[in-house]
Design a protein around this nucleic acid. Structure first.
Lengths: 248, 248
DNA sequence: CGCGAGTTTGAAATTCTTCAAGATCGGTGG
DNA sequence: CCACCGATCTTGAAGAATTTCAAACTCGCG
């Protein structure tokens, strides 16, 4: 087969190949064998770039695909009629977006890029089709969904049973752990979200988040400079959570 | 085929038959065709009775099956090292339990019966096997998981963005709606959980829950007698939530 | 009939929010 | 290159919501 002329390859044409991707151990293919992963290449269609502040999807959009983050950061949120916004999660490289849409065939939350990002688009009908054939894919996909449920329960614990400083400590340790899993520093990183967004996620006002940051810094647990965070004493942060300050 | 003698049939012997069950439109089979539902009968093994206050499973238990509630009520909770408990959900007839276990092959929360209950035991390996063959089952199962994720996001909204009375109003309306879906009265029902358990779910202390009940009663929205609830003015309850009292 | 678990209610204490004012940062245009 | 702008963040002080502590009440059950 030969092309008659050189046609410029646009972003939309780039086929993702899971088998070539360096996110294997973080993403959907985790735990699948080589043969199974090769079959995945059929599944992942195009990549899609999403600029900072742009929506990947909105609540109400018809559900057609789920997304694996290749590059960048997202937040998901739900909005009440009166405008109150609840951030339900921050997603980074290798994590999946869009699972909320399966239930009603429409998305139930918004997904917004926190920085210029890129996702792999996985057509949902194809995913179901292929996962009927490829056992490892089926199993992994179920694990991904289940993991999201477990994560959500953790957030409920955070919101329902922890005080402000515990919530922030848990949040920072969680970020640190996810950066580590991706080969980045556990101790030093940039936040991609504002204090307001952190506050929404943690059920706190941005001022409370800011104050907690300051107190952590005063206590020598972290160094904060706006969005740049250095974790100086992770043990102390961990202790903070385990301490039964006995509330709620 | 004929039995030689009458052998007493014990609970463990009773095979569930989805095709015979009156929970079709609420449970896993929802949306499947007759042929598909007949195949489901292969899937559901035994039923299991769980007495009030007993665990269906505990955090850490190896994951082997998911459960569909036939009769009764459950709560699920997660517990922190220091003993703090967060109720993550209350489940009633037709709802599924155990999805949290898929992710790590061990359960991540406790499931406790709030009254004498009975569940259908669905072996997970069989479920995966059959859902590779039966498209409708695969699709429904995915929807069930996704619905749980969407529900969890709603709880996050509740915990992160609503005040005490709004949370309780949302809780009551949610119960009412679920009773309605099962053909029970939307306006009058018995709570199966204590104030303490409601509080844990809603991120409030039991006294706060109690006070909110009292205020709702004083305002003519509901009539409370311990665990017996009558909803007198659902519209007023609904308005309470939509009202932007502007907090958090 | 009395016990205990669960619930209600009041008053004080605490945490978090609200309101307000500055401070800091990155970027832009003169 | 620097002043300025808007967006974001920090900090203080006052206020509100919720928790804590304490006591009394209710109800089902033995």
């Amino acid at each position: 087969m030969q092309m008659k002329a050189t046609v410029p390859i646009t972003a939309a044409d780039i086929k993702s190949a899971c088998s070539q991707c360096n996110l294997l151990e973080l993403c959907l293919p985790f735990g699948m064998n080589e043969h199974e992963i090769n079959r995945l290449d059929e599944l992942v269609g195009t990549r899609r770039k999403v600029k900072r502040q742009q929506h990947l999807y909105r609540a109400g959009d018809p559900f057609e695909a789920i997304y694996a983050i290749r590059i960048g950061w997202f937040k998901t949120d739900v909005v009440l009629e009166d405008g109150r916004e609840q951030v339900t999660g921050f997603q980074m490289t290798g994590e999946m977006l869009g699972l909320d849409g399966i239930s009603t065939e429409a998305h139930s939350c918004n997904a917004v890029a926190l920085e210029d990002s890129e996702v792999c688009v996985i057509a949902y009908d194809k995913l179901e089709e292929l996962s009927r054939e490829v056992e490892g894919l089926q199993h992994q996909f179920h694990k991904v969904m289940s993991r999201e449920i477990v994560r959500d329960h953790g957030v409920m614990m955070l919101l329902g049973s922890m005080r402000a400083e515990e919530r922030l400590a848990a949040f920072l340790l969680n970020l640190s752990q996810r950066f580590t899993a991706r080969g980045f520093s556990a101790a030093e990183f940039h936040l991609r979200m504002t204090r307001d967004e952190i506050g929404s996620y943690l059920g706190l006002k941005l001022e409370t988040v800011s104050r907690a940051f300051s107190r952590f810094q005063d206590d020598g647990m972290i160094a904060v400079q706006q969005k740049h965070i250095r974790i100086l004493d992770p043990e102390k942060l961990r202790k903070l959570i385990q301490h039964p300050v006995a509330v709620r």
